[in-house]
Design a protein around this nucleic acid. Structure first.
Lengths: 103, 103
DNA sequence: TGACATTATGTCATATCTGACATATAGTAG
DNA sequence: CTACTATATGTCAGATATGACATAATGTCA
């Protein structure tokens, strides 16, 4: 998918599920975004449940607070690789990721 | 994880599972690579099962044959996003991806 | 053998992602 | 109110991923 499309999507403030037709997203594009949304929600949940701040998590990831915030906001600039490896660092097991994706 | 580490890994010709200690990969890094390996295997399986050539798949993805080959070889230059969206284009459902990752 | 389809590997310009930084916006306690 | 902590948002230089291309292997069939 073109990056520009996702930017547009966010700019328009549409809920992802409902934007598919409007923006001409393919099923695959939409499904990918849904998956990333699930992962980002899961990330925030995990982090908060453990009482870890974005700053602390950023340190563990050798990243920055702003990037963590973007991850949790599912910013278009965030890759699935980053989401997944962050979850793994927070102790998520493949089983957990599997469940997150399916949901 | 540093990209250089994965390059090194491939260069050394190690099976990923056994390379973790040797190259100082973190558990998270290793798990991420394992997941990508699973996805790439799944991609090749799906493609072949459907009798689709790499060239044909490349067209559907608006990509190139060489990139498809790299995906299936799990080349370090291939992102999880690309693997996943390719699988989705090949008709994989979130459930399928979920199963692939878990395994 | 040759001709052809398929897959693999290497390179490169361009596009996208990333960490870092600045700064803004909550929220909370004193 | 101020001071402090946490989170959000914008930007940018440098790092990484991508498609495209060339070319090399590998098959396959006649």
């Amino acid at each position: 998918m073109k990056k520009s499309k996702r930017e547009k999507l966010k700019a328009a403030g549409w809920a992802v599920g409902s934007a598919q037709e409007f923006l001409g997203l393919s099923k695959a594009d939409a499904a990918l975004i849904e998956m990333k949304l699930s992962l980002s929600r899961s990330l925030r949940e995990r982090r908060q449940r453990r009482g870890v701040s974005q700053v602390e998590l950023a340190k563990r990831l050798h990243s920055s607070q702003s990037r963590v915030a973007k991850m949790e906001a599912c910013d278009p600039s965030v890759s699935m690789d980053l989401l997944v490896s962050s979850l793994l660092v927070l102790g998520a097991k493949p089983t957990d990721l599997s469940r997150t994706i399916r949901t």
